[in-house]
Simulated scan of single mutants.
Amino acid sequence: MKKFGVLVFIILVGFGISCSHANKTSKETQVLIKTDMGNITVKLYDDTPEHKKNFLKLADEGFYDGLLFHRVMQNFMIQGGDPKSKDAAPGVRLGAGNPGYTIPAEFVPAHFHKKGALAAARTGGPENPDKRSSGSQFYLVQGEIFTPGKLDTMEIMINGRAKNQFLQEQFKASSEKLNEFRSNNDEAGFNVFVAEIRAKADSLWDGQNKFSFTPEQREAYTTIGGYPSLDGEYTVFGEVVEGLEVLDKIAAVETDRYNRPKSDIKMEIEVIK
């Protein structure tokens, strides 16, 4: 996440901070991510306002200047924004730092993980059921190019997982009745009831809206590429408009076992629009 600019001084209610850029509403708010390997220009989306506002606040404060791209994985993404990465000793594992708060997820179907997407990192697992974003860490997607058949397979897998979760919810809703059969040692009745639950779940599932990639996603993922399995899991709030070749150069650097570049890649952020 980076920076922006405005000529008005307004108190940011959400963060309680006065910021000259954070309330700018220009549809082409852009920031320049400067590195020793080249510059990357990114625009921020207006329809993910909390992420945009937070990114601008931190950028205006100079929060990101001197931080590292601390996690780099070729054909996946480059990640930065950990405050602990500033002046970090060589070889130290990074990625746990944050500014002390998180941001509510802002999932917009039109914004997905195509190559060049700017997205917010976050903590995974059951401790973050709402998929709230890190207050500072972000990544830029490099990804890879997918064939139509691979996207088809991914749709099948996603729908398969969703159907299995749906079935588990049906069993959970019937747990009291299932426990009665167990208490009575009624194996035959238990098996019949399980079959009924499955049949009902299959019938209900047939009426559900199944997941499918949009034409826009398919076009992007089969041409410039990206990382579609992250869609709907992490908030995308901007995209690269210039400097994809720099993204590729950074993604190709040599890294250690923690995916940290062996030679530090520092960033500076400058608001250009």
Results as ranks from 00 to 15, higher is better:
160 G>P: 05
119 A>S: 15
115 K>W: 11
105 A>Q: 10
155 E>M: 05
120 A>S: 14
154 M>E: 15
161 R>S: 12
91 G>F: 01
134 S>P: 02
90 P>F: 01
100 G>T: 08
116 G>P: 11
104 P>W: 06
165 Q>F: 04
155 E>I: 02
120 A>W: 12
110 A>Q: 13
147 T>E: 06
158 I>S: 00
110 A>D: 14
108 V>D: 11
156 I>S: 09
141 V>E: 02
148 P>H: 05
168 Q>W: 04
153 T>F: 11
120 A>K: 06
107 F>E: 08
168 Q>G: 03
126 P>V: 10
154 M>C: 09
101 Y>Q: 07
119 A>I: 01
109 P>I: 12
149 G>K: 05
134 S>T: 08
92 V>R: 07
129 P>G: 13
134 S>L: 03
103 I>S: 02
125 G>M: 08
116 G>V: 02
157 M>T: 11
160 G>Y: 04
123 T>R: 07
132 R>D: 14
127 E>A: 11
90 P>L: 04
153 T>I: 01
145 I>W: 00
163 K>C: 00
135 G>E: 02
168 Q>E: 13
128 N>D: 12
99 P>W: 00
163 K>S: 06
132 R>C: 08
156 I>W: 03
107 F>Y: 10
144 E>A: 01
140 L>T: 08
123 T>I: 13
133 S>H: 08
147 T>H: 03
125 G>Y: 10
130 D>R: 15
115 K>R: 14
114 K>G: 13
100 G>L: 03
116 G>Q: 10
138 F>A: 08
126 P>K: 13
128 N>S: 14
97 G>L: 09
131 K>E: 14
133 S>K: 10
139 Y>H: 10
94 L>I: 09
125 G>H: 05
121 A>W: 06
107 F>K: 07
168 Q>D: 15
94 L>F: 02
119 A>N: 06
102 T>D: 15
99 P>Y: 03
92 V>T: 15
99 P>A: 09
166 F>R: 00
163 K>A: 09
107 F>S: 04
118 L>I: 09
152 D>T: 12
123 T>D: 15
162 A>R: 14
96 A>M: 14
163 K>Y: 12
146 F>C: 02
111 H>F: 07
164 N>H: 08
93 R>L: 09
136 S>C: 10
133 S>Y: 05
167 L>T: 00
161 R>W: 01
111 H>M: 00
151 L>Y: 11
123 T>P: 07
137 Q>T: 02
106 E>H: 01
146 F>Q: 00
145 I>Q: 07
142 Q>K: 11
100 G>W: 06
150 K>D: 01
115 K>F: 11
101 Y>H: 13
131 K>P: 13
151 L>V: 00
130 D>A: 12
114 K>N: 10
140 L>I: 15
135 G>Q: 07
116 G>S: 11
131 K>Q: 14
136 S>L: 05
130 D>T: 15
103 I>F: 05
140 L>V: 15
141 V>G: 05
118 L>R: 07
102 T>F: 07
130 D>K: 15
115 K>G: 11
98 N>E: 07
110 A>W: 07
142 Q>P: 08
94 L>Y: 04
106 E>K: 01
158 I>T: 01
92 V>C: 10
164 N>K: 14
108 V>S: 11
118 L>T: 03
121 A>C: 10
133 S>P: 13
109 P>S: 15
161 R>M: 05
137 Q>G: 00
114 K>R: 10
128 N>A: 11
140 L>G: 13
113 H>Q: 10
122 R>I: 04
91 G>L: 02
